[in-house]
Design a binder for these strands. Structure first.
Lengths: 205, 205
DNA sequence: TCATATCTTGAACTCCCAGTACAAACTATG
DNA sequence: CATAGTTTGTACTGGGAGTTCAAGATATGA
């Protein structure tokens, strides 16, 4: 994949709705090119095929999210507050690009190999979240958990699936507000839990 | 899609690994038929194409999970205990069929339309989990939350993404044990939360 | 200013493979 | 046995992904 010029990159987002709606298999290359407003030959100059177009959108999106989450996580404030910001940041990006989210979840296997995605996510999200958890233990705003990696993955899953659900359901006109509302609900769950009795110090077996 | 005989159904699972590894687009129909050990003509007698084969696997899988989760949720015991059983039940089914999970997550858009999937999940999981939450409030083992639907979705997301991650990572030789371990980690998070200070009764603003 | 490299695009072409057609054999079941 | 449904092999075709190529446009820089 050649270095994609910014102008072309932004045009590609115009094809996301088509891919999301019809699926990559059903969307013809000519149609994707039309939707993006670029000639098919140009598309093939930059990409080896439609799979790579989707791969580009995935990479772009991951970069965006990683940036926002990273910023939120390294801001000043308690670890707990930063965790809440990070959750909202990921949701905000997802709800800003619902069509891309739908396109990606529908054809994820054509945009990346799953093990590679897992590794990339590990790097971009689980690690920052996991270190946020560690910092929370230090500053006293979060409790110590047994397996921070697993917790980070669970949080990521809750955010992602909730965000996808919102993207699929179609949306209101104020995605930032939606993101805040959903983030609050997730954070309430993740921070306060559902139990009425406090955690059993001997473990929850 | 014709009524699929049980014998054929079980054979189809034999093609899951191929589809998971290469993706539906790259796996030729003849190869899928070979992997399943059925003639291509027979495959086309029952299905309109490879998309429908994957759709069948999805439906079968959802049925399995819904059954196990439903059983766990309606067993005797406190709502909290049943919630834990339900979490483990879904993970157990997923880890029992890692290849199907990988195949589905790679080509979800070819197995179903996403809004339909969302509706089906709503019915099969979020509803039972949401009512479990309500029962928990009644029997005093779970606290009242503002938006049970959102909480149910978050829990589902945490389970699903964690389960997929385990399926992608390849696995140990004791998937039941893995499921139990992962479930315990998720339940610890969902029940006890991460906060050190108790929930603010005025809301978490 | 020219030369050279890179980008942009249209158009024609190839080849693969999903899906179809069909007929013969086989199996149930009443 | 008759009839309906199932199973399977083989041959075919149509569409579309991706390739090729060449001509024009645009940049780079000497």
């Amino acid at each position: 994949m050649r270095q994609v010029p910014a102008k072309l990159a932004s045009k590609l987002y115009g094809a996301a709705e088509l891919i999301a709606e019809r699926g990559l298999a059903d969307a013809k290359v000519d149609e994707i090119a039309d939707a993006a407003g670029i000639p098919k030959a140009t598309l093939y100059y930059y990409f080896t095929g439609k799979d790579e177009v989707l791969a580009f959108l995935l990479a772009d999106m991951l970069g965006l999210i990683a940036g926002e989450v990273g910023t939120a996580a390294s801001a000043p404030g308690s670890a707990r507050d930063r965790l809440e910001s990070a959750v909202e940041a990921q949701l905000a990006v997802m709800l800003d690009h619902p069509a891309v989210c739908r396109a990606l979840v529908g054809d994820l296997g054509r945009a990346t190999r799953l093990p590679e995605l897992a590794a990339a996510l590990q790097e971009a999200f689980h690690r920052p979240i996991a270190s946020l958890l560690a910092e929370g233990v230090s500053d006293g705003t979060l409790r110590l958990v047994e397996d921070p990696g697993a917790v980070a993955l669970s949080i990521f899953g809750a955010i992602t699936v909730t965000g996808l659900s919102a993207a699929v359901d179609g949306s209101s006109n104020d995605s930032a507000k939606d993101a805040a509302r959903i983030a609050a609900s997730i954070c309430d769950l993740m921070l306060n839990g559902l139990a009425t009795t406090p955690a059993n110090p001997e473990g929850d077996r």
